Deep mutational scan, measured.
Amino acid sequence: KELVLVLYDYQEKSPREVTVKKGDILTLLNSTNKDWWKVEVDDSQGFIPAAYLKKL
């Protein structure tokens, strides 16, 4: 599985998104959309702007 590093805090703005903190390491589930990547946070899944993430 691929991991990503969160570069900036992000507060979810819709139920399909997730809240993350700078420095979090998350599992990347889908990066086919260049603007929004799907990640797994704890036991939930959701989208975060790709610009907030860096592949490890």
Rank of each mutant, 00 (worst) to 15 (best):
F47V: 06
S14E: 08
D35E: 11
L7A: 03
F47R: 03
E40S: 10
L29I: 14
K21R: 13
K21E: 04
L28S: 01
A51S: 14
W37Y: 04
K1H: 12
S44W: 15
Y52W: 07
W36N: 02
Y10I: 02
W37H: 02
T19S: 14
I48V: 15
F47D: 04
E2W: 11
K38E: 15
V20W: 05
L28Y: 01
A51K: 15
L26W: 04
L53I: 05
T19D: 05
T32G: 08
N30Q: 10
P49F: 06
L29N: 02
W36A: 03
K21V: 07
Q45N: 09
T32C: 14
R16N: 14
E40L: 12
W36Y: 09
K1G: 10
D43P: 03
D35F: 15
N30I: 07
G46F: 15
K1T: 11
Q45Y: 14
L56A: 03
G23V: 01
T32E: 14
K54H: 10
K38C: 14
K22A: 13
W36P: 00
L28N: 00
K13M: 11
L7Y: 02
Y8H: 14
T19K: 08
K22G: 05
K1D: 08
L29S: 03
P49N: 04
D43R: 10
D24L: 08
D9I: 03
V20E: 00
P49V: 04
L3A: 05
V20A: 10
S14G: 13
N30E: 15
K54E: 14
T27N: 09
V6A: 06
Y10L: 02
L7I: 08
L26Y: 04
L7R: 04
N30D: 15
L56E: 03
W36D: 01
G23R: 02
D35V: 13
E17P: 09
E17R: 09
K54W: 08
E12V: 15
A50E: 04
K22E: 07
I48A: 13
K55A: 07
D43L: 09
E2S: 11
V18A: 06
D43H: 12
E2K: 09
V39N: 00
L5T: 04
W36F: 08
I25W: 03
K22P: 03
D24Q: 15
V41D: 05
K13R: 13
K54S: 09
E12W: 15
T27L: 13
V39S: 00
I48T: 03
P49M: 04
L26N: 00
S44Y: 14
E17Q: 12
K13V: 08
I48N: 02
K54N: 05
D24K: 07
T19C: 07
Q45G: 06
Q11C: 12
K1C: 14
L53H: 00
Q11I: 14
D42Y: 11
L26K: 01
K38A: 10
Y52V: 14
L3S: 07
D9M: 03
S44G: 14
D24H: 06
L26R: 02
W37A: 02
V18G: 03
F47I: 06
L5N: 01
L56N: 01
K1W: 10
S31L: 03
E40M: 12
Q11K: 12
R16F: 14
V20F: 05
V39F: 02
T27V: 15
V4H: 01
K38H: 10
V39G: 01
Y8G: 06
D24W: 15
L53D: 02
A50C: 08
T19E: 04
V39W: 02
P49T: 03
S44N: 14
Q45M: 11
V18R: 06
I25V: 11
L53P: 02
L28Q: 00
Q11A: 13
A51G: 12
D35Q: 11
Q45C: 13
S31F: 06
L53A: 09
D9H: 05
E2A: 10
R16K: 11
L7T: 04
S14D: 10
V6C: 06
V4Y: 05
K54F: 08
D42M: 13
D43C: 13
L3N: 05
K22C: 07
G23I: 01
A50L: 03
S31Y: 06
D24A: 12
T19Y: 05
K34I: 09
N33Q: 09
T27G: 06
W37D: 00
L5G: 01
L26A: 07
D9F: 04
D35L: 14
P15E: 11
D24I: 05
R16Q: 12
D42L: 12
I48Y: 02
S14T: 12
I48Q: 00
K55W: 07
Y10M: 01
L3C: 13
L5F: 06
V39A: 01
R16E: 11
K55C: 10
P15N: 11
T19R: 08
L3H: 08
V20I: 05
N30P: 04
